[in-house]
């Protein structure tokens, strides 16, 4: 019963944040702000999906050894996701700024000022 409650709670939180990630793709005006929503909200949502899987596998761990494997491999998938999502977002932001895509409605842009100052990056 407690496994059921914890899994349901984690899945509700994860679906909430994943939905916000999808909403932010349509709501925000340019690439950089969309990256905020798309990276942070979906990563946080997937952390809670992994938490639900971990709770479920702990609940069934007494019987069969493959639930221990499920536990370890889910943690591994989470680590891969944390590293690759942040790095991918950084690469996309850098590439779009270098290709000349400026942030919409920005109040300050130090990177553009530096490039206009004539310094090579």
């Amino acid at each position: 019963m407690i496994v059921f409650l914890l899994v349901t709670l984690a899945l509700i939180v994860s679906l909430f944040f994943n939905t916000l990630g999808a909403v932010s793709l349509y709501r925000f005006p340019d690439v950089y702000t969309r990256l905020h929503g798309a990276t942070k909200c979906t990563t946080f949502g997937t952390i809670f999906i992994v938490a639900a899987v971990l709770v479920y596998s702990i609940g069934r761990m007494g019987g069969e050894p493959r639930f221990r494997v499920l536990f370890v491999h889910s943690i591994f998938a989470l680590m891969v996701l944390l590293i690759t999502n942040a790095t991918g977002a950084h690469a996309l932001a850098r590439a779009s700024h270098r290709s000349g895509l400026l942030p919409v409605g920005a109040v300050v842009d130090r990177l553009e000022e530096r490039r206009n100052g004539g310094e090579a990056l």
Partner: peptide, 23 residues
Amino acid sequence: ADRAVALDTLNTYVLGLMLLLAV
């Protein structure tokens, strides 16, 4: 770049979906 961001988001969702379907 917008399409790449959407693709990145899609990939994260598919990973979460795969974990849930595995269980």
